[in-house]
């Protein structure tokens, strides 16, 4: 009798467990990552338990103090600890890249203690690249979040003057949920910098066509008119 009772509990328990595993509604955090990276994350999660975000946060506090003390290598190390320990926190990628590509990079450019301009330039680019790499890695963990793509676009545009990559990043960012309307405009501006008026006009036209109720419709129309005036193309003719 007791064995039957135990067996019933076992069967019912396993059945229910399996049932819930099958209907598990949301993917695991980082479910889209390659298995190796996922395993690493789950291992950190298991070993550190509930302290995992706290370890990441404490590394992040050290990032802030490193920034205040202008210790860029220490800052970078702590950004890596924070992003590795809790990669699902967008803040670490976003702000970490900002510290590297802007704060560290610009500080090196303006470093008066270094007399050699070329060394300053080299260091400026070094930190800008670090920031870019960090954001690129961040987009592996957050492939569908507009913010990192937007930051990456800005970084390409402002720090590396790479308008092709900037355009691609802004465009991608604008396609994801939650992206503000200006992101799509930024893609357009980045495209303008590439010097292909036909492509630019095509982009703006398509943007209006795709979402005619955009809040920034007026702005785009104005821009379109201005661009058409500036180009030799007939404003009344459709864009080739």
């Amino acid at each position: 009798m007791k064995i039957v009772f135990c067996l019933l509990l076992l069967i019912l328990g396993f059945w229910g467990k399996r049932f819930f595993e099958e209907i598990k509604p949301q993917p695991e955090l980082n479910a889209y990552l390659p298995l190796g990276k996922r395993f690493e994350q789950q291992l950190i999660r298991g070993v550190l338990g509930g302290w995992r975000p706290v370890v990441a946060d404490i590394a992040w506090l050290r990032v802030t103090t490193s920034w205040e003390n202008r210790q860029w290598n220490r800052l970078y190390e702590n950004v890596r600890i924070a992003t590795r320990t809790q990669p699902e926190s967008l803040l670490f990628w976003d702000m970490g890249a900002w510290h590297l590509a802007w704060n560290a990079s610009l500080a090196e450019r303006n470093n008066r203690l270094e007399a050699r301009i070329e060394v300053r330039k080299e260091k400026e680019l070094y930190w800008a690249e670090k920031g870019k790499n960090l954001l690129e890695e961040g987009t592996i963990y957050h492939p569908t979040h507009f913010k990192l793509w937007l930051q990456l676009g800005l970084l390409h545009q402002e720090r590396r003057h790479d308008y092709v990559s900037a355009y691609e990043c802004f465009l991608k960012s604008s396609q994801f949920n939650g992206a503000p309307s200006y992101v799509a405009r930024m893609a357009g501006y980045a495209l303008e910098k590439q010097g292909d008026p036909a492509a630019v006009l095509n982009y703006w036209e398509k943007l209006l066509e795709k979402s005619p109720d955009r809040p920034d419709r007026g702005l785009i129309e104005k821009r379109l008119l201005k661009l058409k005036k500036e180009t030799t193309l007939d404003p009344l003719k459709p864009i080739p």
């Binding site: 509990l9 019912l12 328990g13 396993f14 059945w15 467990k17 819930f20």
Partner: peptide
């Protein structure tokens, strides 16, 4: 619901097995 259901059914089989052993 998922964590609640998952915990409940896990506890069921755990109870079944531990009772079996403990008996």
């Amino acid at each position: 619901i998922p964590p609640l259901g998952y915990t409940f059914f896990n506890l069921l089989w755990i109870l079944g097995l531990s009772t079996w052993i403990f008996e």
